[in-house]
């Protein structure tokens, strides 16, 4: 399996990146200080900790995926190490898959540390482990499948700065795409409606993975919804990775 050594190497490379620890530090700082913010409320203090904690994990998780993801391929090209790698019997899709898997592993570990920080903060507040939050974290990780895939996709054909801007835009659009359906209802023209409809299904719908509200208020979440969201996350990221491979195949490194 040629993907495994690339993934392992990507992981080793990513965990040496200082920016990762800087983001982790700020995420943990936000999670721990949410305990202080919770003292300002009247009513349920745990809710404030959970909201701030989940938001910090989600926000810094996305930043990690973008800031590390965008440099993974471009750095190899910039340092010309890609010539070495591709001269070996490794296919380009295997290279991209390895990069993708390595980055996901890095983010999974970072998310685990941040989640542990949140669970401990809550444990010191309420004396119990709020394990139901793990479901929200699991689905958030599926969201990162897509964000990471986009970060790698953009980094195959553009500069790191543009990649980060494009991926951030995808993140924003992904959380706003549901508005396209509302817009479709208000547009009179057929073509306008068709464009909204097409864009809605073409762009990623990252709200599918947002169950923070349900988890915070301990509302019932159907397993069907969770499984469908996981399925959507995996299939959409496969599409993006395949697109990235198509573009990457066409690049000339010889």
């Amino acid at each position: 399996m040629k993907v495994y050594p690339i993934a392992l190497n990507t992981f080793r490379e990513a965990i040496r990146d200082r920016i990762l620890y800087l983001l982790l530090f700020f995420a943990l700082l936000m999670i721990f200080t949410s305990r202080i913010a919770s003292l300002l409320t009247v009513g349920e203090e745990s809710k404030i900790i959970i909201d701030v904690g989940l938001s910090a994990i989600s926000f810094f998780g996305v930043l990690m995926a973008i800031l590390i993801g965008i440099t993974l391929v471009s750095r190899e090209i910039e340092k010309r190490t890609i010539y070495n790698i591709l001269s070996k019997p490794i296919r380009r899709y295997q290279f991209l898959l390895g990069k993708y898997a390595g980055l996901l592993l890095t983010i999974l570990i970072m998310d685990f540390i941040m989640t542990l920080g949140l669970l401990l903060t809550l444990y010191f507040k309420s004396g119990r482990f709020e394990l139901h939050l793990l479901l929200a974290m699991g689905l958030f990780f599926c969201e990162l499948f897509i964000i990471t895939a986009f970060a790698i996709f953009f980094s195959t054909f553009t500069t790191p700065i543009l990649s980060s801007i494009f991926t951030l835009a995808i993140y924003a659009v992904g959380h706003l795409s549901w508005n396209l359906l509302a817009l479709k209802e208000r547009i009179a023209s057929f073509w306008g409606k068709a464009l909204c409809f097409m864009l809605y299904y073409l762009l990623p719908n990252l709200e599918n993975f947002n169950i923070k509200n349900e988890v915070v208020h301990q509302l019932t979440i159907g397993w069907k919804t969770v499984l469908l969201a996981i399925g959507y996350g995996i299939s959409y990221s496969v599409v993006i990775i395949l697109l990235a491979t198509l573009i990457f195949q066409r690049r000339d490194f010889v």
Binding site: T41, K47, I48, D51, V52, L54, S55, S58, F59, Y171, A172, H175, L176, L206, E207, N210, K212, N213, V216
Partner: peptide, 9 residues
Amino acid sequence: LGYQNLAAD
């Protein structure tokens, strides 16, 4: 952008 719970808090 999906952080409405935090905004409410």
